[in-house]
Amino acid sequence: MEKYKYNESNGLWYELQGNYYLPCLKLPEEEQVHIGIWGQRHLNYLRENKRVLL
């Protein structure tokens, strides 16, 4: 069986994983955003006190 297949109807490549063909998808690169001093303090509060929410 072929490792990769191209489907012309939807324009996606598929990769063989076990017995199934799964689509080869990539997420776009995200820009890193500066959250500021208050965002950092809120993040530290969540890390220290509300680990379930984080």
Rank of each mutant, 00 (worst) to 15 (best):
Q17S: 12
L16K: 08
P23A: 12
H42W: 14
N49K: 10
W38S: 10
G36H: 01
Y45R: 07
Q32H: 01
I37K: 11
E31D: 00
H42E: 09
P23D: 05
V52E: 12
L53I: 04
N10D: 14
V52R: 07
C24R: 12
L43D: 01
L46D: 02
I37P: 00
N7S: 05
V52T: 13
K3S: 00
L43N: 09
Y45T: 06
Y4G: 01
Y21G: 00
R47M: 15
E29Y: 10
L12V: 08
L22E: 13
W38F: 15
N10C: 04
Y4C: 01
G39V: 11
R41V: 14
K5H: 05
R51N: 09
N19E: 09
Y20G: 03
G36K: 09
S9Q: 05
Q17A: 12
Q32L: 11
M1A: 04
E30D: 02
L25N: 10
N7Y: 10
N7F: 02
N19F: 05
K26L: 15
E8L: 10
Q40H: 05
W13D: 01
K26P: 05
H42P: 00
Q40T: 15
L43W: 11
N44M: 11
H42Q: 15
N44F: 11
S9H: 12
Y6W: 12
L54Y: 08
M1E: 12
E15N: 09
L53Y: 00
E8V: 09
Q17E: 07
K50A: 10
N19R: 07
S9N: 10
G11A: 02
L46N: 05
S9K: 11
P28Q: 07
E15F: 02
N49P: 01
L53G: 07
I35H: 10
V52G: 02
E2G: 03
E48F: 04
R41S: 14
W13P: 01
N7D: 15
R47V: 00
N44L: 13
N19S: 14
P28Y: 02
L27S: 13
K50T: 12
E30L: 09
N19A: 09
L27N: 13
H42S: 09
E2H: 01
G36C: 05
V33H: 14
L46C: 03
N44K: 13
M1G: 06
H34K: 06
G39L: 14
E2I: 04
H42T: 04
G18L: 00
R47G: 13
Q32D: 11
Y14R: 08
E15K: 14
K26S: 15
W38H: 07
P23Y: 04
K50L: 03
R41D: 06
L46G: 01
C24P: 01
Y6K: 03
G39E: 14
E15C: 11
I37N: 11
N10S: 06
G18S: 03
Y14Q: 08
Y6N: 07
P23H: 08
G18N: 07
N10W: 03
L46R: 08
K3T: 14
H42M: 15
L12N: 08
L43R: 07
G18E: 01
N49L: 01
K50F: 02
Y14F: 13
L46Y: 07
L12W: 02
E2Q: 09
E2C: 07
W38A: 08
R47D: 10
S9E: 15
H34W: 03
H34Y: 14
W38L: 13
S9F: 02
E31S: 12
Y45K: 07
Y20C: 02
G18H: 00
G11W: 10
P28W: 05
W38V: 01
Y45G: 04
Q32R: 12
